[in-house]
């Protein structure tokens, strides 16, 4: 599918595969002798978003912005504190583990660190067959066939199936993780920093592979990363997170060409550019990300925002729609 065809498809259809409604994930902070809860880290704080079938929704944010927690809560790898998660219009946020099982095969995840996410005691074949063993009734022979075809799909030699994870490089391990995620023909895959541990030449190989697989199997991706260039390359729409909330969400072109939120502007300007003839003007933000256990009042970004005014300390801005598909949470854009 060409880029234009894909954009058209996404614009005309409102077929949501995943929807999050007012999703919250608070982690309690225990203190004192009695280990009472003395506060909360609001890792995900009232997030609503919809993911359209077949698209790649990129989520960018700095460390501590809550982007990984968001992914884990959507998959129910972590329990949401509040809010709903709809998968193909069914509310999965309160289902028991047993009730969740049929949904599990449709939703998969690829993690950042392929060194930690693959069991070192299992060989490639066992790693890929494991989900088939749990979720399907394929026999031994069929499972082996499937494992071999998956290895070929992700660009690994089928004769490497008896090797163990330590015998592979980082890029190859990430291919194994992808093969494993694909084993059950999922519809939706969360990719949590899948290429950030890889060198650029290997990163390009893995990104191309992911794009090819998306076309072939009509996959929907939620692509979580801190690298704005990588997210721009792979995504159709992009959400920018700051301290557990969405600061801005828009189709990729809008977000990168006309960023509205001062945080998005600063983030984009800070990306080192290889364009030696046209240097971008940098907006250097002061200070660090505030602690998510004690976020600033009002707008969480106001302590670092070059455009902050009085109102930002008093009221928290809500996400407002400024143009087709472009939402921003900033008082500057309120009527």
């Amino acid at each position: 599918m060409s880029v234009i065809e894909k954009e058209l498809k996404i614009e005309t259809e409102n077929d949501f595969i995943v929807e999050a409604k007012n999703l919250k994930k608070y982690f309690p902070i225990k203190g004192g002798v009695l280990k009472r809860t003395v506060g909360h880290v609001k890792a995900v704080d009232d997030i609503s978003l919809s993911i359209i079938r077949g698209e790649t929704l990129g989520v960018v944010g700095e460390s501590g912005s809550g982007k990984s927690t968001l992914g884990r809560v959507i998959l129910r790898l972590m329990e949401p504190t509040e809010g709903q998660i709809l998968f193909e219009n069914e509310d999965i946020s309160r289902l028991s583990n047993r009730q969740l099982r049929p949904f599990r095969k449709d939703m998969q995840i690829v993690f950042q660190d392929p060194f930690a996410s693959l069991n070192p005691k299992m060989n490639v074949q066992e790693l890929i067959e494991e989900p088939l063993l749990v979720q399907t009734s394929l026999d031994k022979h069929e499972r082996r066939e499937k494992a071999i075809s998956l290895l070929e799909k992700v660009g690994l030699r089928p004769d490497s199936r008896l090797k163990y994870p330590h015998e592979f490089s980082g890029g190859q391990r990430q291919r194994i993780s992808i093969a494993r995620a694909l084993a059950l023909n999922p519809k939706f895959i969360i990719c949590d920093e899948p290429v950030s541990a890889l060198d650029v030449s290997i990163q390009a190989q893995v990104l191309n592979l992911m794009a090819d697989l998306q076309d072939e199997f009509n996959l929907t991706y939620l692509f979580i990363a801190h690298d704005l260039s990588v997210v721009k390359h792979i995504s159709d729409r992009v959400a920018v997170m700051y301290l557990g909330r969405i600061a801005e969400i828009a189709p990729k072109k809008n977000l990168y060409d006309t960023p509205l939120h001062p945080y998005t502007e600063a983030l984009l300007s800070a990306v080192p550019s290889t364009d030696v003839l046209n240097k971008r003007e940098k907006i250097i933000l002061k200070g660090d990300l505030p602690s998510p256990s004690n976020p600033p009042s009002g707008c969480a970004f106001r302590t670092r925002c070059p455009k902050a005014h009085e109102r930002c300390a008093l009221e928290r801005p809500e996400l407002i729609n400024v143009s087709e598909g472009h939402y921003v949470a900033c008082h500057l854009y309120e009527q």
Partner: peptide
Amino acid sequence: SLPSLEKEVDRL
């Protein structure tokens, strides 16, 4: 192989 903010390509 470097994705960039300036250019748009289908595959790297």
